[in-house]
Each structure stands twice: as C-alpha cells, then as structure tokens.
Nucleic acid binder design. Sequence first.
DNA 1: TTTCAATTCTGAAACGATTCAGACAAACTT
DNA 2: AAGTTTGTCTGAATCGTTTCAGAATTGAAA
Lengths: 339, 339
Amino acid sequence: MITNMIPPDLPPKAPPTLKTIAFMTGLGISTVSRALKDGPEIGADTKARVKLIAREIGYRPNRAGVRLKTGKTNVITVVLNAGEDGSGFFSNFVYGISDALSGTSYHLVVTPYSLSDPMAPVRYIVETGSADGVILSRTQPDDPRVRYLLENGVAFATHGRTEMGLVHPFHDFDNEAFARLAVKKLVAKNRRRLTLLGPPASLTYSKHTHLGFERGLIEYGLDGVPLTSIDVDTSLMDVREASRRMAAGQFPPDGLVCSALRTSFAVAAGFEAAGLKIGRDYDLVTKHSTELQEMLRPEIISIPEDFHQAGHDTAVMVMDWLAGADPADLGRLVKPDIV
Amino acid sequence: MITNMIPPDLPPKAPPTLKTIAFMTGLGISTVSRALKDGPEIGADTKARVKLIAREIGYRPNRAGVRLKTGKTNVITVVLNAGEDGSGFFSNFVYGISDALSGTSYHLVVTPYSLSDPMAPVRYIVETGSADGVILSRTQPDDPRVRYLLENGVAFATHGRTEMGLVHPFHDFDNEAFARLAVKKLVAKNRRRLTLLGPPASLTYSKHTHLGFERGLIEYGLDGVPLTSIDVDTSLMDVREASRRMAAGQFPPDGLVCSALRTSFAVAAGFEAAGLKIGRDYDLVTKHSTELQEMLRPEIISIPEDFHQAGHDTAVMVMDWLAGADPADLGRLVKPDIV
DNA sequence: TTTCAATTCTGAAACGATTCAGACAAACTT
DNA sequence: AAGTTTGTCTGAATCGTTTCAGAATTGAAA
C-alpha cells in the first residue's frame, strides 16, 4: 500500500474486523466468530443479528489472521512450465481453474518452473506451506512431484495420469482413443503410410498416444513408424525442417497424426516446402482447442481437447479433496468428442 | 494440508520460526528478528551467528505472520479478462510477470474478470487488501480502475496508457508507430485502398492505432476507411464473414492493417472465401507475438509485439513503486521493431 | 566515586482469527 | 430446596512477526 495519496480528508477507515462487530453488537469477539460460522452454542437471534451487521458493514475475514491461526492458506497453486503453450493451453487451463475457484474462498497463484528443475516449486510450496492445494501439468509415469506431495500430505491433482500405483486425483484426455480415432480418419481417406508426431517420451500421455496409434495400425492391418527425433515440444522451426526432409524422402508418409495444433502447422509448412499438398498428397489429424484452427487450415482434420474443462476439473478435485473427499474417487478420463 | 498420509514414523516437524532460532542461539525473539534484517542495534557477531543458523535450518519467514503484523501481503495480482487471448498474449504476459517476480518475495495471483464488471476484482483487492500491487490490461482512456486504485493508494501498473491527466506507471507498445509503419509497408506494395481493423474503440490503444493509420494515409496522400462494425475483439467467425462480404463488394480494399494476429487469420480466410488471394489481390499487415505466424501464413506481413516484455516491465514498475520510486518516473513506450 | 552515554539485548503488546475452558442464568430433576 | 442439566455467552491463549520502550553491561567523563 502506498499511503501518500489518500485524500487527507478521508481517513483510511480500517476494514471491519471481528472486533468491530463485537463492539457494534455488544457481544464478545469469540461469540461473533462462532455466530458467523453457525456454531451450535449460539442463539438463533444472536446469529441473525451478527450476520446482519456483518453483511451490512461488509465484513470479510482477514486472510492473514485465518491463515496464521489455522494454517489454512486458502490458496491453490498451479505449477506451469513456461514453454508449454500450444495455442491456448495456458490461458484455457488457467481460466478453467479460475472458473472453478470463483465464488469460493480460494485464490489462484501461478508458479512457473523451468524444465531443468521441476521439483523446485513443489518443494517450495511444501516447505513454506504456501498453498492448500496444487495443480500439476506435464505429468510423468513416475513423477517425483506426485510422490513428494503424497509423502507430505498436500492435496493436489494432475493433468495427466501417473503409473506409480499411487492413488491421486487426475484429469486426463483419452489420448489412446484420440490416436486410434486419428488413424481411423486417415484410413477413411485411404492413407496407408502413417506416422505419429507425439508428445515427448517422458510424459505419460506419450505412451497412451503411441499405444493408440499402434492399436489403430493393427486394427487396419497397417504398419507405420512413429517419429522419434522430434516431438510436440520441439521448436517449430526444427519441426518444419524435419518435416520438409521427411516429405522430400523416398517414401514420405501420406498420413500424419500430431498431438498438438501448433506443431501440426509446422508439419504442414514443412510438407508444403517440399511440394506436397495437404488433402492431395497427404492428410494430417491433430488435436485442437481453439476455433483458430479452422480459420487457418481447414484442411487439417482436428479432434477437440478441452483445456478449460481440464483446468476446471483439476481445481474441483483439489477442493473436494481438501473438503474431505476420498482422493481414490477423484479422477476423470475424457473421451475425445466424435464430431 | 491433508495430514492423514504422513508416515507415522516421521513426525511432521513444524517449520522453523524465529522462536526456533531464538532457542538455538539463546537470544530473544526480537533480537533474532532484528538481526535477520540487519538492524543497527545488533552486534556484528550476533548477526553472523543468527544468520548462519537461519540458513542452516532453512528458516523462511512465515508469510501470514508478516502479513498480519505489517499489512504487507507480498502479493502482486494481475487482473486479466478471460477472452483476451489473441495467440499467446495471456501466457507470454503472465510469464513476463513471473520472470520479474522470481527471486523476489512476491507471489503472483491471477484474477480473472468478466467484461461486464471490470471494477469487481479491483474493488475486491482494495477492500480486502489482498495484494500490494496490481497489474491491469485492456486500459481505457478514462479508466475507472485507475482512478479507483489511485484514490485508494494501491500501487499498480497498466498495460496501455490512460488519458486522465493522472500519473501512473504503464507499459505501452507504440501502436501509432505500428499503424503508420503498416501503411508504409502496404504502400510499398502498391496498395492504395487501405482499411484498418483495429482494437475496440473503448480501449486507449484504439485511438493510437487509428491516429497512426490516419497519419500514414495523409503522409502518402491516400484516403481510407477504418472499419467500425468489427474490431479485434469480434468473434473470428463474424470477422471472417464480414471480411468475406467486404471482399465481395464493389471496391474491396487492397491493403489491410490489423491489430491482432488471430483476427488477421480470420480476415485472410474471409478474403479467400471471396476468391481474393493474398499477395496478389491484397496485402495484410498485422502484429505478431509468436513464431507461429510465419509457419502459417508467411504471406501476411507482420510486425512483432513482445508481451513477455510487457509483463516483465509492468511487474518491475509495480515493485519499484512499492520500493519507494516515484510513479511519475515509471512508464515506457516501446517502438515497434523495424525488422 | 558518581554520572552519563553508548552498545547490545529483551519483554510485552499488537495485528485478526480460532478455540478451549469456563461462567452465568434459567430450566429442569428428584 | 438442593442439585443437575441445558443453553448462551466470554476471557484468555495461541499462531509468527514486528516494534516500542526499556534493561543490563560496559567504558568513559566529571
């Protein structure tokens, strides 16, 4: 607070506290406290009186007071990686969380981290007790953050699943179904030489995506090779160049499955640079999360993934856990929409 | 905190406080407090001893305690509108802020708001004292949020300028220079019938953009009409449809200036639907903030705007203000890069 | 020897909320 | 009439930090 610009005639008027209400009602502070949270040992009319005044003067519990006394921070932290914004993941995910938090007492704090030390923010949160709950993205099969949070008894939810045999809330998109569906769509366009540009191998959904791709190939009696030199985290320039070389090769794929919209644009650019035309020489299936896609390259076939819902879901799960729900009951796998 | 999963053999081990250090050193709590902040009335060796132990046991001041006593929240809040994500504004801006905050004691909380009530979050922050500083975007010429924050003595910075004759920190992109430069680029391509698809009229930078556009026209002896029925906040579908109709008209423009990348894609899609080809029948200049643009439509001429820097700048300004700097000295207008 | 000042440290109060252990009536038992 | 229960309400302690008003020790000046 900068105080030197408050008009001198308007005294700053400290915000009302329990003491204010206690004074106004003539009651004790502890009575007011209990009355506001409907304690059973407070008379009905007293409660009504206290609540009326509280509403009237716009009383809001002081967060620092509550936090100091109870240890409850009323904060949920989302830990995000700075690089992970494929068209709108970041904003949609965060707004999904805010939507879930709005109307509750929770504030949302955003903590970024570098891929070089994913544990740092999680350790900070645990050591300083700076949040009641945590939301993680970029989940790995054996995720040290998950283990650490469980060991320290902090509520959290992940975007993506783990494979550690540990129970925790998660929201995941069914990437296996996505990849299988993608293969199906390519086969429907008579594509036979398929390839997959998936997520980086370290993330759990890479496995699911590859599995779905393989299953799709088997289902239609095809064989294909997933790319290994590049993934959806590779810089767009490099993806374009790799795609160009691939397209210029002897047997370029005629069907591609790609796990991120922005990357698929780079692929299309690379193929175009090699003279291959989408829809004629090859087809491309990707995920999309914004309406942008059809403005840009309506020729790209896309299957929607809703990051807003992912954010909303994970936030609700964390709050439910904090409210006493069993984390074993919290988890959600979302099938791709078949449009 | 969920406590029921802490291994029973590892006692939770409460984090160290001043009391812990006081006990370990044999000093009083107040001495420890002063020693840690280099108070002048503490002996040099005592300070060294206290600091050594503090570092050793990983002491971190309890935020709630500090906040309760001093009123300082160590929080900076960025107030963002849910709809405003033109390709990456949100994530780049937020990461710019986090970058500036990392290494300081400030946490970043993200508060969304609906366009229907932009004052709500700002009022909440002031009334509950939930942040030391605020960062605003979508600044208007006569912005009630700015007036309100100044009146209440809360430090803040805006992304975009105001025109109220009030002094406050801001970061702004020189949209006048951008629009003028855009006209210049179109003229260089022999375009004569220009139009502008700018920001919504309510935002300050709309004025700047229109002014630059007008000046550009005058400079080259052209006349042109800015669009009024649509702006860069209009839904992409509507922009595409409006653009299609415009392109199908009797004298469609042959040069467009557009203030947002995603919108320019919709414009291009609309013109394409009307059979007009970019580079042949018309040209299009827009801003861009991601490498995506050249993957997608390299034919679109683009001038970069750096939202990461904008976030970084505004955050630093707020912290400087809080540290005692004169807000009159804080403000920055960034010229577009001439590539 | 007394007084004064400088140096270094400490206790207590305060910030706002919660909660435990009572206190005080009024209404019941027996 | 004495004791017990029930229904309401309250004081005090506590969370971790900061800060004000002293206190204790030392050395020097008078």
